[in-house]
Design a protein around this nucleic acid. Structure first.
Length: 862
RNA sequence: GCCCGCGUGGUGGAAUGGUAGACACAGGGGACUUAAAAUCCCUAGGCGCAUGCCGUGCCGGUUCGAGUCCGGCCGCGGGCACCA
């Protein structure tokens, strides 16, 4: 009997699949199609074990669907534009293109030995001119359709490097390279009109039955539909043209608790005052030194500037409220102006206490529920109960005294509309998608700026507008910050496609989210001369199962949903693909402990796992220094807690790596990589191989144990099938452990054992395809196990006659009784009451209550 | 700060509101071996001699029955629009 030798069998079967074109996807009318897609990787350099887990999950689905008679599309590509390539170029005098394609080659080389059932003939990278040229064609169609426009927007500006920074590149308000204080600066940029689709993107979430509820909730909150009141305060002593300040509020019922009006530093009135008043200019400048991220605005200390302007309360013109410029108000949301009601908003309360503004409670807990309620004006916290809760209005102006917030808001809007104070309006939090990036390594925006004609689209026959590799014969210099396209005259200076006069190309490139918003559609016809081929899109779309990280729950998935709608409007996708992903699964990360020590300055120094020795729950370096263990952190190169799958594959084989990443942890949860776990997976596969070999060699005649083994086999088929169908890969694997154990102990005859072992091979084939092929061949299976139809469980073999029912006394288990499955409730009750534990507990008394759940449990209440 | 999750033995985890800890790792014991490796078998939440008691982050609630449902905390993670 041969030993389990993954290093020999894995390349052998990979070659067999290649030669048979087993995983080549071609349209086959009459066969149901299945499109399974894992979110494509960024080519960061090398694959890590998290990639292995992600792609193995997709592969299990792909192989299983093939076995159940589907024509499967399972492609792979690379999300290849983006900042890291430029950073690498800056750091090493290289070129983003060379770095990126080098990484892609490496990663493909690392992925191929995993034995994934991918149709590699469809592979592309988003930085291929073939791909981004088609993306430019889409952009031009969107432009024509009115789905793209230009407006001003703020960016993080590094005044020393004279460059735009990503939020990630801003650390504590300073540029990551220069250390200069970052400023907010306005630039004219391109935007997709995603907010026009807000309502549709929100409503359509309801139809996504096979998406995780949490993702739909996150998207719904992000889109953020709200109903509120929009009205204007009239101002006193404001500059000309600002006699009204429009505000939007979702809590008009708190109007009588208003104590100030706040406007964004980017509000037109704030900008007007800035021109007239140095103090305002200084305050606004300080606000603009903050980054552009919402997180930073929300967590920053709340600051305001009293403009000296006041407004009249709409219900009482003698009541004046001060107008503050406040750093936490976003110009992008609502009208860029609010009224503050400190009693019922923690942020407004913090602000009011800081600037000694009045606090007036509008509503309090309902009668009888006051508890320890302390009025906000007496030092209590802001009172913000759920809107569905009934509260007592101390200052009602519409509706009853006791109402829920929801009812009060409706009443307030109705009252205001009747009295000519504003209108009820619906607003969305979702903003338009700014796609301009002032960077080189992205898809060029295919327009030309002409002094006479304005913005002129590039002609489609001139696409792709390719990125220049050299600059006048010399390699582009990436050591200088900023956008090389902007300082590249021979690329930038062109003639206007419309009038022929000297003009300039747009030097901004597209957000990389654009690249990943339609790659799934391109996979259906990766070589088409238009963005998609309708016949292919009709056949292969939608993605039946999309798999990726929860970190993409909002942006990527929302943008892709928008793009699919826009591609349908411009004739690039069928109607059904407005929602492109029928089912979504969000998998967890692979984590690993971090090993760290501190340097003299107290900064952490990280160590690779292979440089650390573990002894009695402590870790030491080779020189004996004790190492701090930080458990379960997301793998990242900089923390040195990465596990290189190549080493695992070399040491144990791909099947072990695949088996391990699927076992133990449920796929949606994070999994901790441990060396011991990989060792155990490897041992188990060796055991399976030995058992299969023994079964193949067995000469025992039909034995006593045939029926129990086959019954167990059918139950296993059922459970494993259900496990894979429901993404319960860990449960399926646990079941396979059990069946392997049953098989190894079985005294069945040779035929039954071989049948059981062949079935085991089939059930394992999605997870450990190479071992499964080897077993299949050894056990006399026909053709490739990859081509064999999935086994079907025989229901009649799974029926049990009796059932074990636990007996509880007052909800605690005190015994059990084995009864025929169909036994009547009354009989079960009688049996339970005669159980010695029940007799003892009752001690002659009669039970207060007996609950019998047929087939499940008996509970006796004494 | 806001939105969304998660929290169960020494460890990863299992459990349609119905026997908490399946399956696996590490541990303990044993078999085989001159010995070791490999392999196989047994054992195993905590406390207790035991009838038993306690136990799913913490506090409270609903229920005949709660890891599961509800409310409030604590801790950890993801996202917050220019990281991908």
């Amino acid at each position: 009997m041969s030993r389990y030798a993954p290093a020999e069998i894995e390349p052998k079967w990979q070659k067999a699949w290649d030669e048979a074109l087993t995983f080549r996807a071609e349209r086959k009318d009459g066969k149901p199609k299945y499109y399974v897609l894992e979110m494509f990787p960024y080519p960061s350099g090398r694959i890590h074990i998290g990639h292995v887990r992600n792609y193995t999950m997709g592969d299990v689905v792909a192989r299983y669907k093939r076995a159940t008679g589907h024509n499967v599309l399972h492609p792979m590509g690379f999300d290849a534009f983006g900042m890291p390539a430029e950073n690498a170029a800056m750091a090493s005098d290289g070129h983003p293109k060379d770095w990126t394609y080098g990484n892609i080659d490496t990663m493909v080389e690392q992925m191929k030995p995993l034995g994934l059932s991918i149709d590699w003939s469809r592979m592309f990278a988003t930085c291929d001119p073939d791909y981004y040229g088609q993306q430019q064609a889409l952009f031009l169609d969107f432009l024509e359709q009115g789905l793209v426009y230009r407006k001003n927007a703020v960016v993080n500006w590094d005044p020393v490097d004279m460059t735009v920074l990503a939020n990630e590149q801003v650390e504590d308000g300073r540029g990551w390279r220069s250390g200069a204080l970052v400023e907010r600066r306005e630039l004219t940029q391109w935007f997709f009109r995603i907010s026009d689709f807000a309502e549709d993107l929100l409503e359509a979430l309801d139809g996504l039955d096979d998406w995780p509820a949490k993702v739909k909730t996150m998207q719904a909150n992000w889109i953020g539909r709200s109903r509120g009141l929009q009205f204007a305060f009239s101002t006193i002593d404001a500059p000309e043209g600002h006699d009204r300040i429009e505000v939007y509020t979702t809590r008009p019922d708190t109007l009588l608790g208003a104590s100030f009006v706040g406007i964004s530093p980017d509000h037109p009135l704030a900008k007007q005052l800035e021109r007239e008043n140095e103090e305002v200019a200084a305050f606004n400048a300080e606000c603009r030194r903050m980054g552009t991220s919402e997180e930073e605005l929300e967590t920053a200390e709340k600051k305001g500037f009293d403009t000296g302007i006041t407004v009249r309360h709409p219900f009482d013109t003698s009541w004046e409220l001060p107008v503050y410029i406040a750093n936490f108000i976003l110009m992008d949301y609502g009208t860029g102006a609010i009224f503050g009601c400190p009693a019922h908003d923690p942020r407004d309360l913090e602000f009011a206490r800081k600037y000694e503004l009045p606090v007036q409670t509008v509503f309090a807990p309902a009668m009888g529920e006051e508890g320890t309620f302390i009025l906000p004006e007496d030092g209590g916290p802001a009172y913000v109960p759920p809107k569905v809760e009934t509260v007592r209005y101390l200052k009602p102006f519409a509706g009853e005294e006791a109402m829920t917030g929801d009812v009060a808001i409706d009443a307030a809007i109705a009252f205001c509309e009747e009295n000519g104070v504003g209108q009820g309006v619906t607003k969305f939090r979702l903003r338009d998608w700014g796609l301009s990036r002032q960077r080189y390594w992205g898809c060029p925006i295919p327009v030309i700026h002409c002094e006479t004609c304005g913005v002129v689209p590039e002609k489609k026959e001139n696409l792709p507008v390719t990125l220049p590799y050299d600059e006048d014969g010399k390699p582009i210099d990436f050591s200088v910050p900023g956008n090389p396209l902007d300082r590249h005259p021979s690329w930038r200076d062109v003639s206007c496609p419309s009038c022929g006069a000297a003009a300039r190309r747009e030097t901004d490139t597209m957000d990389t989210f654009v690249d990943s918003s339609w790659y799934f559609a391109r996979f259906t016809a990766p070589k088409a001369e238009t963005p998609t081929d309708m016949a292919d899109a009709e056949y292969w779309m939608n993605v039946d199962q999309y798999i990726g990280g929860i970190e993409h729950a909002i942006l990527h998935l929302l943008y892709a949903r928008f793009f699919s709608r826009a591609m349908h409007l411009t004739g690039h996708l069928p109607e059904k693909s407005r929602e492109p992903f029928d089912a979504l699964f969000t998998q967890g990360m692979v984590t690993h402990a971090i090993f760290q020590t501190k340097d003299k300055a107290g900064r952490p120094v990280f160590h690779f796992p292979e440089d650390v020795e573990l002894r009695d729950n402590s870790a030491f370096l080779k020189d004996g220094t004790e190492v701090e263990i930080v458990p379960s952190a997301k793998m990242s190169k900089s923390k040195k807690n990465v596990v290189d799958p190549v080493e695992i594959v070399t040491q144990y084989g791909a099947d072990t790596a695949r088996w391990f990443v699927l076992s133990d942890s449920p796929p949606e949860r994070d999994v901790e990589w441990t060396a011991a776990g990989a060792e155990a997976a490897s041992k188990h596969l060796g055991r399976v191989w030995r058992i299969a070999s023994e079964a193949a060699a067995s000469e025992a005649a039909s034995g006593e144990g045939d029926e129990p083994l086959l019954r167990e086999m059918h139950k296993t088929i059922h459970d494993v099938t259900q496990g894979i169908d429901s993404f319960g890969f860990n449960a399926a694997i646990a079941r396979l452990y059990g069946f392997t154990s049953t098989l190894s102990k079985s005294d069945a005859g040779a035929d039954a054992k071989r049948q059981a072992a062949r079935t085991l091979a089939q059930l394992m084939s999605p997870m450990t395809p190479h071992l499964a092929e080897e077993m299949w061949a050894t056990l006399g299976g026909e053709g490739l196990v990859a081509d064999a139809p999935w086994p079907v469980a025989d229901e009649s073999m799974m029926v049990e006659d009796t059932v074990t029912m636990p007996i509880q006394i007052n909800g605690k288990r005190r015994g059990e009784v084995v009864v025929p499955k169909e036994m009547e409730k009354a009989e079960v009750e009688e049996l339970a009451l005669s159980h010695h534990a029940v007799l003892k507990a009752l001690d002659g008394a009669s039970p207060k209550k007996v609950i019998v759940v047929p087939g499940r449990i008996v509970n006796v209440v004494v």
